[in-house]
Design a protein around this nucleic acid. Sequence first.
RNA 1: GGGCGUGUAGCUCAAUGGUAGAGCAGUGGCCUUUUAAGCCAUUGGUUGCGGGUUCGAUUCCCUCCACGCUCACCA
Length: 505
Amino acid sequence: MANYSNLEKIRLGKIEALQEEGIAPYPRRVERTHTNLEVSQAFQEIEDNEEAAPIFATLVGRVRSMRPMGKVTFAHIEDGTSRIQIFFRANDIGEDQVKFFNDKFDLGDFIQASGKIFRTRSGEITLRVSSYLMLSKAVTPLPAAKDEVVDGEVVQHATLSDPETRYRQRYADLAVNPDVREIFRARAKTIRALQNFLDERGFLEVETPILQPIYGGAAARPFITHHNQLKQDLYLRISFELYLKRLLVGGFERVYEIGRDFRNEGVSFKHNPEFTQIEFYMAYADYEDVMTLTEAMLAYVVEQVTGGRTLTYQGQEINFETPWKRVELRQGLIDATGIDITQHATGESLTAAMDSLDMEFNPAASRGKLIDDLLGHYLEPNFIQPTFLYDYPRDISPLAKTKPGDPQTVERFEFFIGGMEMGNAFTEINDPLDQEERFLEMGRTFDVEDEEHNPLDEDYLRAMRYGMPPNGGFGMGLDRLVMLLTDTSTIREVLLFPHLREREG
RNA sequence: GGGCGUGUAGCUCAAUGGUAGAGCAGUGGCCUUUUAAGCCAUUGGUUGCGGGUUCGAUUCCCUCCACGCUCACCA
């Protein structure tokens, strides 16, 4: 049972008063002739034309401001398109009707209002109410103090800003913060743009299992669940990779999936336990082809979402013109640290070289892990402009083909924007014997109990034995891309319902 | 998990080891073109939970909870 606040009790009293008068606080039928935006535009088109018929409209929306002034009242209502002012006047509808609105309606209520559109003396397009109806009574006040409309722009004077309330009660956040709604419109546009771009190039959008008997395709701890009837443990996927590549065996040349991955890891400004990933696989392509496609794809998406090829992220201008900067991992590390990783074939050797650096690391880590640490520390934060970092150590890349003549290095790149790792791609292994050997290698480096150790996926190897075309694959964190496009500094801002700890009440 | 910080009215924020305040919202009143409308009056608090020190704690101390920043972790 809800524990009602004083403000809520007053509103509950108004609901009772309505019911006593035979007025439904939550009626079933609604009428609407225009959206608020449509009617404003229609009015502007005809208002200078003396011959034109006046516009009568029935509008709906949530009451966002009320200014009662004796025998007239002004209010703003907001629908999904915009706000519009409505005007109640005793001469038009009688004093009782004006008073009824003043007394029984509160900020946050939904109203249906009919009348003629006109422009007030102070110049605002307004509906002169001839009749109105309660559509939905709000019991809880919206967490907004007061808004003002200046030149059509909503100016907020103190509104909900407490992050915890904003995330836990996202509905309230969305209701009072229009900027937040824009973030999720941009997110939808981003997804649509990615789909358009790939669809136009012959990619097929597919859906693969989220519940998987064996997880793989990335190094991360999974969430475990259980199917009762089948008496089977299942994992929430940590990546789509192994399923998408099975489809290449099946004859689809280009596939992609946009969906949720789940990783049982820490939470940070760029990590959420469930996050959205886009992966694509392209037969008859290698990682250089994928680089070219990545540049074009991101340029297209940025243009679709922002209208240009540049954007400002956390105060820094980022330019998506192609081609991007390409940095070989080995050379990048030489430039940043003086260490040439090709001179250090083992973790021990590399550790010795890293001792002179001002950086903490686990001396027992593998060579590949140490190199990953180095790039995360010395390179990643400096890659503000879109940058490809390519040719990675083999031992942290079990699905990537080695470089010809260099068995320690694989054809893999990651790309970075705004100092964040955005995605990862490689020339994919399609040799089943090589792949099996790489899986076994991984098995030896990981403790059997280590959950990051992917169990060997025999079915994936069987698929590959049927013959897999050479291909390039790509994965990108969609949430991080949306962060860039909306200039937000944490992943929680681009997730409608970010993960928070459970809280009583 | 570690470190630092925050938690006061519906919202945004003050304040002090001695009865907890403002603006907006709310409530009552005046007001027929306002727009943060205005004017008058006024209600509203277990100061995150629990404990300790103290004559007295919202303030000082401790546990816990939540959130934020950060480090670690993280393909």
